[in-house]
Design a protein around this nucleic acid. Structure first.
Lengths: 348, 348
DNA sequence: GTGAAAGCGCTAACAT
DNA sequence: ATGTTAGCGCTTTCAC
C-alpha cells in the first residue's frame, strides 16, 4: 500500500492524497472524501521513512539514558512519554547501561567511559532523531561531555553549561531548608545530619539549605552530629551507629539524611540500638523513593518531581525544534520539590 | 554530508562507497582506503531514513509497554537493550500508560481500553519498526487483543495463543513448589498462604505449586490458613491480621504470600501483633522486588528473571526477523525462576 | 572491480 | 483546486 495505490483507487493524483492527509492544501470535498474512503478501506499508513527522507524530519526524539535501572530514570521517561503521546513524536530509546560498568563510582570514571559512549551513541542516531533528551542518573554537572550534534539537546536530571544544551533539574536548597525547618518547627534542636558524598553537587546544595534553616532559627549545627555518608544505605547505617555511640550522652532527637537510602540505613541502626522511630529519634529522608512507603514507619521525605522533569524536558525539546525563540531564553529550568510528611518525624 | 559527497572526495562512485560501508562487494584496497579516509575526515553518517526506504528495513524494534511504571517493565527493557546493543537495532519505545487509566483493575477493563490503544499504537508505527515486543505489566493471557501486523511480535511477561505471536514468561509452579518445600524443609508444618487475586493465572499456578509440595510432603493444607489477598500490600496486612486472630490458638509457624507486597503487609501485621519475623512466624514472598531487601528483616522470596525475559524476547524478535525457521519452532518460552534465601524464614 | 542509473514512497514547487 | 514531476539519500542491478 503506497500513496500511489490510494491515488489510483480514489482516482486522484498522489499530490492530492498528500494534501488531504497532511491538510497542506484545500481539496474539493468530494475528492477529499474519495481519498478518505480509500484510506479507510485499505488501512493505508504512510511510510514514515519516505516521509522523513523527504521532509528531513524523523519525528523521533532520541532519549539517551545513562541507565534505565537508575531509580529516577523510568519516572523521567514516564514524564517524557506523557508529553509525547499528545504530539506526533516517537521515542527512540538508547540505554548507555552505565550502571554495569561503573557501579557506584558516581562522578569518577564516568568522564572517560561516558565521553566515548556518548559520542558513539549520539552519532549512531544518524538522521534518526530531531532532538535528544539526555537523561542523567545523578544530579551532576556534565559540561563538556556532550558534543554538539546540530540538534536540540536537553539534559534531564543533570546540568551542563554548554551553550548547545538546555537542562531541567530539581530544587535542592530551598527544599532542604524547608525540611530542616520542619524538623525545627517540630521542636527538634539537636539535629544530626548524614550527608551524601561531600564533593557532589546535591550534597553541597542540600547542606546549604540545611545550614540556612539552622541559621535562620538561631541554632548552630554541632559538627559532632554531622556524619559523611556516601548515598548508600549502609553508610546511613554506620553513620547512625557512630552517632549513637559517640553521642550517647547527648543524643540528637532527629536526624536528617540526604537521601532515603541513608535514612533507612539510619533507621536500621536506631532499631538495632533498641530505640524507636520516631519516638526516640525522628528521621527525615530525601528523594521519596518507592521504598520510603515500604519501610515502617513510613518515611517522611522530600519529593523530587521526576515525572515533571521528563515532561518539561520533552516540552523544551519540542519547543526548541519549533525554532521557538522564546524557548532559547530559559535554557535551564529548576523544578520545585516538595515535602512529603509521613510517619518518621515526631513533634516534641 | 551525503554519500555523494564522500564519493566526490574519494573520487569513486556512490556505489563503491556503499560497497565499502556495507561490505556488500569487494573493493580494491586502495579505493577502499580513500573512502574510509573521506568518511573519517568528514564524520559522515549514512542517513538511516534513506537507507530504510531503500532496503525496507527500519532497523528499529518497537517496544510497546503497557506502562513503564509497572514494577517489572524497566528491568525487561533493560534486558531488551542489553541484547539490542550488540545488534544494530534501535528501540522505538511506546508507552501505553495503562496504569493511569486502569489502576488496579488488572484483568478487567484492560480488554476494551487495551484493544483500542493497541490498535492505535501499533498502527502508528507505520513502517517504523521491523518487529515489536509487547511488554505486559501482569502475567496474563492476552489472546485476541493483539492484531496481526504482518511483522514479528513477541510478548514479554504475558502470553497469548494467537498464531502470530510468540511469548516469553517465567516459571511459577515449579518455583512455588520449591519455595513451599523450602519452608517444609525448615521444619514448618502449619503454613499459611496468602493468595493473589484468585482468578488470575499466576495465583492459580502458584497455588498449584504450593499444593504439589504439600502433597509431596504428605501434609495437608488447612483451608483455615489460606486467605485471599489481592496482590496489594494492604491485603497482606489484613489477611495476616485475620489469621492472627482466628488462629490464635493454633498459629501457623510460617506464611507464604504470593508476592512480596503482601508478604510485607503480613510482616506489618505480625510486628503489630508484637510477634517477630522470623522467630515467631516465618515469611516467604514472591517476585524479589527491590523493596524486598529494604524491609527488615530482608525478605526471602522467589526471583523472576525479568532481565532475562527482555533479553530473550529481543533475541526471539531478531531471530524471527531473520526468517529463521527454527525460531518458529519454540514459540513460547518459560524462563526458570529461582529462590532467594534471605532472613525471613527460620529453621525450627 | 567499478560505475551509471533506476527507484524505494513521499512532498512540494510549479504549472495548469 | 489539482496534477506533473523532481528529488530527498541510499542500495543494487546491470553493463562494462
Amino acid at each position: 500500500m503506497t500513496i500511489k495505490d490510494i491515488a489510483n483507487i480514489a482516482k486522484v493524483s498522489t499530490a492530492t492524497v498528500s494534501y488531504v492527509i497532511n491538510g497542506t492544501k484545500p481539496v474539493m470535498p468530494e475528492k477529499r472524501q474519495r481519498v478518505l474512503d480509500a484510506i479507510a478501506q485499505t488501512g493505508y499508513q504512510p511510510n514514515q521513512m519516505a516521509k522523513s527522507l523527504r521532509t528531513k524530519k524523523s519525528n523521533n526524539i532520541g532519549v539517551l539514558v545513562e541507565d534505565i535501572m537508575g531509580f529516577s530514570t523510568s519516572s523521567i521517561i514516564d514524564g517524557i512519554s506523557k508529553h509525547v503521546e499528545h504530539s506526533d513524536y516517537n521515542i527512540l530509546l538508547n540505554d548507555l547501561r552505565l550502571l554495569d560498568s561503573l557501579l557506584n563510582q558516581y562522578d569518577q570514571i564516568v568522564q572517560q567511559k561516558d565521553k566515548i559512549n556518548k559520542a558513539l551513541s549520539l552519532l549512531r542516531f544518524g538522521a534518526r532523531v530531531d532532538a535528544v533528551i539526555y537523561v542523567g542518573m545523578f544530579d551532576r554537572d556534565i559540561s563538556g561531555i556532550i558534543t554538539d550534534i546540530g540538534k536540540p539537546i536537553v539534559i534531564a536530571y543533570s546540568t551542563a553549561n554548554d551553550s548547545h544544551t538546555c537542562s531541567v533539574t530539581y530544587e535542592n536548597e530551598t527544599i532542604s531548608a524547608e525540611a530542616m525547618r520542619y524538623l525545627i518547627d517540630c521542636g527538634h534542636k539537636r539535629i544530626a545530619v548524614i550527608t551524601g558524598l561531600a564533593h557532589t553537587a546535591p550534597a553541597q546544595m542540600r547542606m546549604q539549605g540545611i545550614l540556612e534553616a539552622v541559621k535562620e532559627a538561631g541554632l548552630v549545627l554541632d559538627s559532632a552530629v554531622v556524619k559523611n555518608g556516601d548515598w548508600e544505605r549502609e553508610s546511613g547505617y554506620f553513620c547512625m551507629k557512630d552517632l549513637l555511640e559517640q553521642e550517647k550522652d547527648n543524643l540528637p532527637t532527629a536526624v536528617i539524611a540526604m537521601n532515603d537510602l541513608m535514612a533507612i540505613g539510619a533507621m536500621d541502626a536506631i532499631r538495632e540500638a533498641g530505640l524507636q522511630v520516631p519516638q526516640d529519634i525522628s528521621v527525615m529522608g530525601f528523594d521519596n523513593r518507592e521504598i520510603s512507603t515500604f519501610v515502617w514507619p513510613k518515611l517522611t521525605t522530600a519529593e523530587i518531581d521526576l515525572k515533571g522533569i521528563g515532561f518539561t524536558a520533552a516540552q523544551m525539546a519540542i519547543a526548541q525544534m519549533g525554532g521557538n525563540e522564546k524557548a532559547r531564553q530559559e535554557q535551564h529550568v529548576v523544578l520545585p520539590s516538595r515535602l512529603i510528611i509521613r510517619d518518621t518525624v515526631a513533634n516534641i
